[in-house]
Write a protein that binds this DNA or RNA. Structure first.
Lengths: 126, 126
DNA sequence: GCGGATCGCTTACCGTTGGAAAGTAGGCAC
DNA sequence: GTGCCTACTTTCCAACGGTAAGCGATCCGC
């Protein structure tokens, strides 16, 4: 909300804001899928990633990978050959995030049906 | 990518697409924070949620809550009084998603510093 | 030597999304 | 009547993301 609270507590609040912000970047749709694919495939090239991550545009793939590189989640290796060959792989940090997010993937697989029925029920309201 | 692959496999691919889509909705920035707050606080009113979820606009709060209700993650209770009183609380499904996502919160807390230094290092490149 | 292909981007354009702020409904205290 | 309360809804505008085209450097076929 735009309402700024009188802000009684301080440090806890700061850390929580930072963590929330971090979650906002890292729990991004494309970031999660890229991590998933890289965790499964190991090292991959740009176009291969583009094919593996269904639905992503080149612009967003570039952007997502840059951000992940900046955050220390992936390592970008450029082989100076023609045509260019660029490979991406997860750092330990990236792998650990993949592990942490694993629970959500499992949850999604297990509860897919429940959510679909919940939606149908909701859409049939009076 | 816009390139549609020849699509050899079928069912596995479908399920994975559905799960990925579900992740895209559920791993949304605001959804995660709302779940976190509701998991900690129990039942909450609209404006209280708005204060607890720092940075959200009323529009997005309404939208996020509607979507979560549709997906069966929260229950919305309207008390027919004046002024209106609407309370939100997590369903079992919502709670279980919170649990599944817990690992990511822990990861974020633990690795906050590492990411910050990675960013600084990245931003000082030539 | 010249056009086309390859690969990893970058750019231009443009529709969709999200934020800030004002408005709405409907009874109630003054 | 005037204003306030809450949970939205609406309006306007800026930013984000998709589509498609271009770029640069080299190798291949002719």
């Amino acid at each position: 909300m735009s309402v700024t609270a009188p802000d009684g507590c301080q440090i806890d609040h700061r850390v929580e804001a930072l963590v929330t912000d971090l979650i906002g970047r890292v729990a991004d749709k494309w970031t999660m899928v890229v991590i998933e694919v890289l965790a499964a495939q190991g090292e991959m090239r740009f176009t291969a990633l583009g094919h593996a991550v269904t639905g992503i545009s080149q612009k967003m793939l570039t952007q997502t990978l840059r951000q992940m590189e900046r955050d220390g989640l992936v390592i970008r290796t450029v082989h100076p050959v023609i045509p260019p060959r660029v490979e991406y792989r997860l750092t330990d940090l990236g792998l650990s995030l993949g592990d942490a997010f694993c629970g959500v993937w499992i949850w999604a697989e297990q509860n897919l049906a429940r959510i679909e029925t919940a939606r149908e029920k909701f859409d049939q309201r009076p």
